[in-house]
Design a protein around this nucleic acid. Structure first.
Lengths: 254, 254
DNA sequence: CAAGTTCTGGTCCACCGGACCATAACTCGT
DNA sequence: ACGAGTTATGGTCCGGTGGACCAGAACTTG
């Protein structure tokens, strides 16, 4: 609810009319694939506290907008990207003292983007960078505030969503090959997937990927040119690819 | 982040130092099984706005506590339940005007409890009640603020978590039969599950349920006395029961 | 043109999920 | 006390899926 309903028979040690004031912000964890690895967009702080440290982009929510609108606005302001190809709320953070200056509760959003080269350029690039999530998570780069935890939660969310939604196509371009899509799964999950089986399942799930007639040019290393697909409309509810190693019983394929 | 990082080359139409003040609340959707149906705990509001309407319990977050702590405290104050058997954050809501008096952002928590009879009694029962979620969702009972949406999201979350975590055991008592556990799945999903297959999978998953030597007394309708189990420690990561009807392809069992 | 690399379709088999049957162990009514 | 009804629980059977593996197609480079 919004006001404390004072009907429980507990000592009224807190006056509901004197509610404490908080600042509310939205922070975005922007993830992308770069060079075959998962990266997160970070900005370097110029002012205290945590001046000089890396942080995830974000800003204050305005009273006249919803949380989703605030996230979309901030994403556009900080990265120049308008396409809310994927912008998903995944958590709220309000530990006391997480901002030394004031009481702040932040609502965290996950954004998955492709082609971050153009994005980093659009954001006055000086203080923005794409950092491999592995570096951000293992402490090689320490983040401002509780942003390390937020990034960790976001990555965990992506790992789960990859299995249950069509989030994978948000990582690749408007047109892509099966191998590119498979690389997303392999990078995020850190596993190896059989190419033939992967392709079979992806194309079997109707509505997932739609073949364009065209073919991609092979890389410098050769190989048969791959078929080009574009994303279908089945963006939610059940992707065809399942995380392996889930059979933690006593199986072990042949 | 917590302060707006002003490095993007966008017009500074908003002054970060003048952040708007919000009230932050935590609201709890308390779900339980009663009489074979899924119920939600609601309290009747005594003061405007929405006086007389039903609402989910909740209250203000204090600057000295985390969001999780606030949720646990409020749950105890309003329901008398201390056991955080399951208390999970699932969303933040901050639409403008959701509270006509002021700017409020609420962080919603899902609580799953058993044995709500004692709970409703402990909360000075006059204004608290267990309402079937079906009544709360189809508009038969209209809720204050945007609580209808919050309850809807919570129920959806439970449906998903039921498949992927061990949340089901939170609905039943400290000791339970396989049939009781199956009733949880059937009520939440609205499906019928085969008793024999259900039992097989539940007991096969090691660590899920632990047999106590005892047996339950059969109901007034007779039948073989069921074996009594208690919940194991495998509370997270992958329940053994899957939602049927997921094969939306072209199957149809034999 | 040979060798290497990648894509893509095919095959095969173990395992799983769900339908179904059978039996055990209780209740109630007569 | 005994049959009928009811619930619990184990067994069996079978189609479908997932994953390992092979083979051929279509490109690269040297």
């Amino acid at each position: 609810m919004t006001t404390k309903t004072r009907d429980a028979g507990v000592p009224a040690d807190y006056d509901p009319s004197q509610f404490p004031a908080f600042a509310v912000t939205v922070d975005m964890v922007v993830l992308t694939m770069s060079n075959g690895r998962l990266h997160v967009l970070l900005v370097r702080r110029g002012v205290p506290p945590f001046a000089g440290k890396w942080a995830i982009p974000g800003g204050f929510k305005r009273p006249t907008e919803t949380l989703d609108e605030a996230a979309r606005r901030e994403l556009g302001e900080e990265t120049g990207v308008d396409s809310a190809s994927l912008l998903k709320q995944f958590g709220a953070y309000g530990d006391p003292g997480r901002d030394p200056r004031m009481n702040v509760v932040t609502v965290a959003y996950l954004a998955v983007l492709r082609d971050l080269g153009a994005i980093a350029a659009g954001t006055d690039a000086a203080d923005a960078a794409l950092i491999p999530v592995s570096d951000a998570l293992n402490g090689k780069i320490d983040l401002a505030f509780d942003h390390a935890r937020i990034v960790r939660d976001a990555v965990e969310r992506v790992r789960v969503d990859l299995e249950q939604t069509g989030i994978a196509t948000a990582f690749v371009g408007p047109t892509f090959t099966v191998a590119e899509l498979r690389a997303v799964y392999e990078a995020v999950w850190g596993v190896h997937l059989d190419g033939a089986n992967f392709r079979r399942r992806v194309v079997a799930e109707s509505g997932w990927v739609i073949p364009t007639g065209r073919r991609a040019r092979p890389g410098s290393t050769g190989g048969k040119p791959a078929e080009l697909f574009r994303a279908g409309r089945m963006w939610k509810q059940g992707g065809p690819i399942r995380h392996p190693q889930s059979p933690e019983k006593g199986k072990g394929g042949r």
